[in-house]
Design a protein around this nucleic acid. Structure first.
Lengths: 143, 143
DNA sequence: TTCCTTGCAAAACTTTTGCATTAAA
DNA sequence: TTTAATGCAAAAGTTTTGCAAGGAA
């Protein structure tokens, strides 16, 4: 769960700073959730986060996980994805990018922006402008 | 709810034939749901379909609506969309196409295939192939 | 103290399932 | 008659909410 030689404690401190920068009070639970989610680009469900935190001994409620994820998403710290109807996925990579969705395994894989190029896009309807483009490339096992 | 001068009854008959062609027994409820959904390209939720049928006097259960929509989707008669996390939308247009999603009104608008052109796409990961591409262009009110 | 956050339980919502009843072939 | 579809209620899964208790400033 660590990266580039930083200790878990140092990552937690970095996360605290990121929360503060977003105007979010860095409470214990929020820092735990942020540390889990922001340590690397990844896609997690609320349930996975809850389980992971409890497995590591933390006392967290479902309500707090959802409240926190919604707060983070609102402040642009994470992104909520709708790739299958079953549940929400929270993406710690908020840079613009697209996704592969492996329909066999359920896995989500980031597709960097430069890997997709449009030579034509429709004009938005009158009175509207484009707020963003979501692309999901569905994958199946090669036959 | 009618189009091109066809009566409701004629449309229902056409729908019956389409169901039979897909190997689906054209029961009363199924024909009603198909008639509602297939009379024009549109995006409806299960709840909207249930309400609409009941408003027109039909006796239908929630279970049947869901079972029927899942059956139709499985047989390729309609397509299930995941555009917001809140619920599933059922699209009666099964030809390949993309979507505008108006985040202000919640409306879904079809984007025909020729309106989008790629000059670059990522190669699918080894062992997989592309099963389909979903694009949602999010719209907001022009500022 | 005052305000915000948390946990718990319950509620709200969407979707699925079990089972007795009904309709279709 | 035989099989499959329907309705109802209940269950299951995800997400939200109300409220009392706890923590931060």
């Amino acid at each position: 769960m660590e990266s580039q030689g930083f200790s878990g404690e140092q990552i937690a401190t970095q996360c605290e700073r990121r929360l503060s920068d977003c105007g979010i009070r860095p409470t214990g639970q929020r820092v735990r959730i942020a540390t889990l989610l922001l340590c690397a680009p990844q896609h997690l469900s609320a349930e996975q986060i809850l389980e992971s935190l409890r497995a590591s001994g933390a006392r967290v409620s479902k309500a707090t996980v959802y409240n926190t994820l919604n707060l983070f998403a609102e402040r642009g710290l994470i992104r909520q994805l709708s790739v299958d109807g079953s549940r929400a996925w929270f993406d710690s990579n908020v840079d613009a990018h697209y996704h592969f969705h492996d329909t066999t395994t359920g896995a989500l894989i980031d597709v960097p922006i430069p890997d997709v190029e449009f030579s034509r896009l429709p004009a938005p309807p009158a009175g509207t402008e484009v707020a963003g483009i979501d692309i999901v490339i569905r994958l199946r096992k090669k036959s």
